[in-house]
Design a protein around this nucleic acid. Structure first.
Lengths: 325, 325
DNA sequence: TAGCCTCCTGTAATCGATTACACCGCGAAT
DNA sequence: ATTCGCGGTGTAATCGATTACAGGAGGCTA
């Protein structure tokens, strides 16, 4: 591989001058063109490890996600990637599998690699996160709130739950169930809280047997939906609070060997193949969330000061197909 | 952040000794325990940038993919990630969007960052790939063959196409269409070749109007399927040669306002929500492919010599639900 | 007891870039 | 004509680890 010394030798200048040309510092025109010619001839690109060591930060950002197989997070990753690429940064993708230790492991690596910044969708509370933020490393948290004083891009989860449940009630349903994520997940709890509030506001009961905590995956949605439909008095409508759970619920409905129920889903419904005319979708935009988070991160990396921001990402209610009679 | 000097000072030894303890070189028991105590007390972890510079390679591997939103590739990524993590490596995920220039850009970065290795699902021919391999950097190509002399993990695409088409013919269909990927994609062409061979072997015609080239995405499958079903003499069965195209085809069938056709899909059918009783699935295992590729890469990083390997990944035919009458 | 070998240990070189600092030359100001 | 200032340049320090090399202590052999 070519080194800066060889470029300097070929151009007949010092390494300092080569470096200055490549970093846009002022250099006399004659030398500049000599350097550029040498760079082109040798196909030189600077070694990023050496640069990172000297500059004390690399051109990498870490994107730490709970589940890279969930399309919600891959869309988010896509958004981050697009902004990062435009800013000359590369994305290191880390999968925590919802495990806090793994999360801490990757945050530590991000630190030890002198990465320029971190975007984290937390699997749980993190001690390292606060330390990173304190030493003013660029950090943005997405999707799930943390108490720390860092930039965050979030949904208003209570509001999401409320609006989705309201939409189902407004279609005339009185027994509206809710399938949400694990009890320990604040996001899941908040959306369920919204569901409960909406029912109460409409003067409807929200009994415990209409609320099911499931894992936030397809099989969780399947199990929960089957359980709800098998009840002595099945619900008229069901709210699934995330996209994978929604897919599971849709599968059970599509199998069609139980009572029917209208479905509401909070999420982005990727790769659905069944007709979903009668489904209410409160659409989230993970890609936009990723774009926003990455922009904020890039601003911080560029040195933007100021207090930590909390950005609430909007969502869009969509009715798919014709409403139920 | 803690530096090795501070650890050395606290333990009362030289930095060399600290480094040796951390890298498992022999050190006297007394010093070793003193160093370990100091490391624990300060919470020291070595700076990876400095280590990479000295060792001439980092603990990162690049995974360069054409489309991180395609579940096929996210499953593959998941497999790579699992092996990498176990080997102490982190994965840098790069999305080429099927663009060769972007691909070269990322390969160059992998080189400039002194990454330990690269796993590439090529969007097209690459000049850098050969150069990396020549300088015996660890490289593994997945999913799409390249002519270069590097390790590859592939499917036998002609065979996949043939077996899937055979299965549809064996169910009694005579007009079997094929939706494959872009004409320029060798994988797409190979699977279509297999389809053609199967029909010919069965003494059936494989006319051009039964072969549709689509983009390898959901909308490509939708358009192609709609086109096939709208033909004056629609096919009795349709083979979709990748999972996203299959999703698109399924959507059109599920909408149900055209003639019916039996579907065959080569892929891994993620997140499908419609009943797919009558669908033949030739199941691919991208996660296994990722595991295998990462294992081969790790072996190479550890210094394994020997000629470049070509591993053919198996697939499993699955009939979903009851066969058509 | 002298000579050698082994095993640790510390000092300093090294990886490859960026950049602080010193210095040089030239034009402007006095 | 001297001084000052300034833009441009090169030399060498620097980032933080790993590791080549030199040297010292101790055990073993002759």
């Amino acid at each position: 591989m070519t080194r800066i010394k060889e470029v300097a030798a070929l151009a007949g200048v010092s390494t300092a001058t080569v470096s200055r040309v490549l970093n846009g510092k002022s250099v006399s025109p004659g030398m500049e063109s000599a350097v550029r010619r040498a760079v082109a001839e040798l196909g030189y690109t600077p070694n990023r490890t050496a640069r990172s060591l000297r500059r004390q930060h690399s051109e990498l950002i870490a994107l730490v996600l709970p589940d890279i197989e969930n399309p919600f997070f891959t869309s988010l990753a896509r958004g981050v990637e697009d902004v990062a690429r435009a800013a000359g940064l590369s994305v290191v993708l880390c999968n925590t599998d919802e495990d806090v230790d793994t999360q801490e492991h990757y945050l530590r690596i991000a630190d030890d690699e002198n990465m320029a910044g971190v975007i984290l969708a937390p699997a749980g509370p993190s001690a390292l996160l606060a330390r990173l933020a304190e030493r003013h490393r660029a950090v943005v948290v997405v999707d799930r709130a943390v108490p720390d004083d860092v930039d965050q891009v979030l949904f208003d989860n209570v509001d999401l739950g409320r609006r989705a449940a309201q939409a189902l009630v407004d279609r005339g349903h009185r027994r509206v169930a809710c399938i949400t994520g694990p009890r320990a997940t604040p996001t899941a709890k908040a959306r369920a809280d919204g569901w409960r509030e909406a029912l109460h506001e409409k003067g409807l009961p929200a009994p415990d047997d209409l609320l099911v905590y499931a894992n936030y995956r397809v099989d969780g949605g399947e199990t929960a939906m089957a359980q709800l439909l098998a009840a002595p008095e099945p619900p008229e409508a069901v709210l699934a609070t995330n996209n994978l759970v929604g897919v599971g619920a849709l599968r059970v409905l599509a199998a069609g060997d139980g009572p029917h129920a209208q479905l509401g889903i909070i999420g982005d419904l990727p790769f659905v193949t069944s007709p979903i005319d009668d489904t209410f979708l409160l659409q989230l935009h993970p890609r936009e969330m990723g774009l926003m988070a990455a922009r904020m991160l890039v601003d911080r990396i560029r040195g933007e000061a100021g207090p930590a921001q909390r950005v609430i990402q909007p969502s869009r209610p969509v009715m798919l197909g014709a409403p139920a009679s």
